[in-house]
Design a protein around this nucleic acid. Structure first.
Lengths: 196, 196
DNA sequence: AACGTAATTGAACGACCGTTCAATAATTAT
DNA sequence: ATAATTATTGAACGGTCGTTCAATTACGTT
């Protein structure tokens, strides 16, 4: 044994996540990151490899936090459907003002990157699929409880929800104030394909 | 009078549009553009001002082409609703493989840029609103023909459609092949809020 | 207290960034 | 033919990019 790293890894990753999330991968420079996380280039490269490596860790961090939040809602709420609905509202409404960026970091990355960064793209896609699976689990439970009356599979409904979230968050950034997001989200759950 | 510019302005803007669309604003360098449109820096700056100026022209070009296409469908198709539906399918399905980028250039820009480029952001938002208006016009006509039975206003339905397009295009880029986009789009028009 | 090991530092690298501008070329008007 | 005007060229600017690495520092072990 020798020196132990003095920086708090989780704290650093959180700061990096917020900066990458705010500015996007391309617009975030290593020097921006150095300032934000207060580390010198050598330390960053020793700890995370390179710009991509750090970004990959922040993606993992972002997705883990999202999934944790789903599980938290799952425990707090009365039904899996309520948990899901509240999570969607959190993603679209709360995040709109409280987060580093009103967009989902994963869809933002999907939007920004091209095949020039195929690895990052593939990882991002896989994370979105992970969240699909979490949604599908809740929907499956909800179906068994008879809360949902739909001929569509849980995974289809999960992906339908992700379409709505992606669309609503984009729309919310454009339209600013004058739209009732809460109502629009309720309507997603009240009508087809969630309920015929 | 003296020399006339020898380059074809429309052709140059088309090439620039495709490159900006493909790579995004930040990842497209002036040198990338120089190669793509075969002009030297001095000529580009004389003709378009700077990187932002050229981008603004490509945004205008992109939006104009979109609106023209809507009008073209409007003339070709039997009903305004058919025109609208076909335009949506074109945006989501055809564009997915034939275009420089499967994403809409406008929403991609909204996703990418921050307040560091407020002017570009505002212009982009305004263009999306323009397209809202075009959608609303078709929907209004369609309502008068009795094709749509909805308590929502034409503009609300137009924005609902834009949410669906933004969501579906993101989703389509993630999910790759295994989803029936055509069916999903039909369902948007067949159910609430388009038809109760 | 001295040693070995690993974390940290920060200057420096070559490449590329957006942009400028003096020099040159090409066209029209005289 | 000459002059006037404007488009075009491409080298060059200062700055920033992602990244490297020799030197230094700080800690656990002996």
């Amino acid at each position: 044994m020798a020196k132990a790293a003095k920086f708090d890894r989780q704290e650093v990753i959180d700061l990096a996540t917020n900066l990458y999330w705010k500015k996007g991968f391309n617009a975030t420079s290593m020097r921006n990151l150095q300032d934000e996380i207060d580390m010198r280039p050598g330390s960053i490269y020793a700890a995370f490899g390179n710009k991509d490596g750090l970004f990959i860790e922040t993606l993992r961090n972002y997705t883990d936090k999202g999934i944790s939040l789903i599980h938290q809602y799952e425990q707090e709420k009365d039904s899996p459907l309520e948990a899901l609905k509240d999570f969607v509202k959190y993603q679209v409404i709360t995040t709109k003002e409280d987060a580093p960026n009103s967009m989902c970091m994963l869809t933002k990355t999907i939007n920004e990157l091209t095949s020039d960064n195929q690895e990052l793209l593939d990882i991002t896609k896989a994370h979105i699929e992970e969240i699909s699976q979490e949604f599908a689990k809740l929907i499956e439970q909800s179906k068994e409880l008879g809360e949902i009356n739909s001929e569509k599979s849980a995974l289809e409904l999960a992906k339908y929800l992700q379409v709505q979230i992606a669309g609503l968050r984009t729309f919310a950034k454009i339209d600013g104030v004058e739209c009732n997001l809460d109502k629009m989200i309720n309507e997603c759950f009240d009508h087809y394909p969630f309920n015929a």
